[in-house]
Design a binder for these strands. Sequence first.
DNA 1: TTCATTAGTTGCAATATGCAACTAAATGTG
DNA 2: CACATTTAGTTGCATATTGCAACTAATGAA
Lengths: 171, 171
Amino acid sequence: MKHNKLDDLNCSIANALDLIGEWWTILILREAFFGTCRFEDFQHHLGIARNILAARLRKLCDNGVLKRVPIKEGAKRHEYKLTSMGRDLYPTLIALTQWGDRWLHEEGAPVRFIERATGDDIADVAIRTKQGRELDARDLALIPGPGATDETRERLHLLQLAWEKHNGGSR
Amino acid sequence: MKHNKLDDLNCSIANALDLIGEWWTILILREAFFGTCRFEDFQHHLGIARNILAARLRKLCDNGVLKRVPIKEGAKRHEYKLTSMGRDLYPTLIALTQWGDRWLHEEGAPVRFIERATGDDIADVAIRTKQGRELDARDLALIPGPGATDETRERLHLLQLAWEKHNGGSR
DNA sequence: TTCATTAGTTGCAATATGCAACTAAATGTG
DNA sequence: CACATTTAGTTGCATATTGCAACTAATGAA
């Protein structure tokens, strides 16, 4: 599909999805987090069509999420490794995994994440204040950030008014 | 595309993407978190084709991420509201937003999330141990969970061996 | 040198999406 | 209560994306 509308939307989710939102891309990244780095291995583990895989890997490299590096010094073959930009998606991927674990795998998670050094389980990813207080979705408000366009400001302002109308009086 | 291979994969990400991984779905959910709940409003804000929107909303409702509720007592018109399953995607969405903010909006985030009651900024979503210690992607290991199939166990075992071969000696 | 493996590319068939016009019911208005 | 308008979709067709399988070219191992 054509998402030519997305890249100029003033929204980080839309912009992020422009890079990693296509079918397969997230699964390719999951594989990368699992340690897969060769074309054939991605193809084999995911069962993805080879042309699609090639296209997705190219796009991820072009955008700096993955990098192509020689397998060893001087080799012509290369492998795909996560960049720091790519590794920085780990919280997102784990949050999504935990959601799937909670709601789609009541018999228990297929995979557990632990700290390698200690064996400690990781906690559920949560939204917190900078002081560490955990927040519920409904405790949040959205306000324009430094990169907000006038349109975004307008939108968020209307949002705030709508919220006040609904909840402002009854509190 | 047909992802008939995904739903039987023993992987929460694949299973989650089966529900919410299609183009537009995440943006529809973002809108829902912004407070949008009517068909026409989703359509107008996103510029999505009406038939696709109808299909996505139906799927999200069928799977319990959204629910259709009457606009008011006894009304025949309805609106789409996040269920608790849907609200539980907030950490994932915010993690993705923050990733986009960091890597695609160096001029600053379009939107800031704050705690409504206090105005406090929220922290970057991070992976932590249950004790609250923050972890890097590379500190993690994956082990089979209670819902792991034999295939998953085998896969994770090979992963562990590969890791030891690479890093085990040099530590 | 020879052969298997790896990493793709190409062409075509099957699917999914975008667009715009159409439908039908619910609601607001006089 | 009748009528116009808004809302929430559906339908059909053109376009774009994906899947599949066969093909190619280069590497690397024996």
